[in-house]
Design a protein around this nucleic acid. Structure first.
Lengths: 165, 165
DNA sequence: GTCCCTATACTCGGATAGCAAGTGTCCGAGTATAGGCGG
DNA sequence: CCGCCTATACTCGGACACTTGCTATCCGAGTATAGGGAC
């Protein structure tokens, strides 16, 4: 029961993309380099974000990834669902209907109380993640990061963007 | 990102054990038979509940499993933690410190905002599960289950207990 | 000088191996019981 | 008739294969660009 690593990567990538100048795009390889993660595998997560409509990709020489909609309209939950898929944590297999005490048809209780509690808890989790959006994260990061780190990041980004014409 | 099947089994087993008469125990094989699940594997989950101090086991001929403390003192969260382990869903690998924009030592921001949001959401999930205890579930199940199903379950249980002397 | 064409280099995208964790199973160690035996 | 001893059958507990899904990687399809050539 752990989120895949792609969730962390996808979230950080979304934040970085939110800080790009309008119209700019960043290739998967550069995003991987910036985060120090294996490039080809990060591409897999980015493709998932693509399918979910969170980021948009441009092919070709000056192509790359950019946010598909305003950062304020992208929640952490969107990113998690895109990477992990939207299936529930808890899957109820109705084991109460399988043993010697099972009865046929609709004579069972209407709902499994255990599953209901599990899904309710999961809903709380989703609500909390839905309340955080990428723009907010980017703003907090921009304010909280020490000047020296911010300068390094901006220098790197400028160089990358300049080298792309 | 899915809970293992053992969580469902463990929770249902706890509820069944909560309905036993005082002093009675049920072997793993019987619990598996009741739920229609593979016996030897269920034992694995029961051992996890044992290590967590949720159930107690008695060896020997009339041995088996019983709750180690009152059902009202066992929450769903206890069961989930016992089976899944208490490690967090989200593990922050601090990828912001790994790229070309990283700075050494303590010059980084104090906390990763993404990780903080993830852990906050997880806390909501845990709070919700901690608010549900096994006694409550057992009561709701006992009230809600149709008479015919309840009769079958009680008949099975009586037979099992009788066959154990 | 301007327009068009072509070759290029770069991008994404899906298809392909490797590995860890969950899933499923088994057999050995230990104990309470039941029956038999001796007093 | 009562107490003790032994054999038994049943229980748990940990050690051993197998499958699914995550991790990591590669190469092919497609496109915007840059340069060169023709008009």
């Amino acid at each position: 029961m752990q989120l895949s690593e792609g969730v962390e990567w996808g979230a950080h990538c979304a934040v970085v993309l939110a800080m790009l100048p309008d119209g700019a795009a960043l290739p998967a390889g550069r995003l991987a380099e910036y985060h120090g993660v294996p490039g080809p595998y990060l591409a897999k997560s980015l493709q998932a974000l693509m399918r979910a409509g969170i980021v948009a990709s441009s092919p070709g020489r000056r192509g790359g990834y950019r946010l598909a909609r305003p950062a304020s309209a992208i929640s952490l939950l969107d990113v998690v669902d895109a990477i992990e898929g939207e299936r529930a944590f808890f899957r109820c297999t109705e084991i109460r209907r399988r043993g010697p005490a099972a009865v046929a048809g609709r004579a069972n209780s209407p709902a499994c109380h255990i599953a209901a509690a599990m899904w309710r808890a999961e809903e709380r989790w989703r609500e909390e993640l839905a309340a955080v959006n990428v723009e907010e994260i980017a703003r907090v990061v921009a304010e909280g990061v020490p000047p020296v780190a911010r300068a390094k990041a901006e220098a790197w980004l400028s160089e990358v963007l300049a080298s792309r014409g």
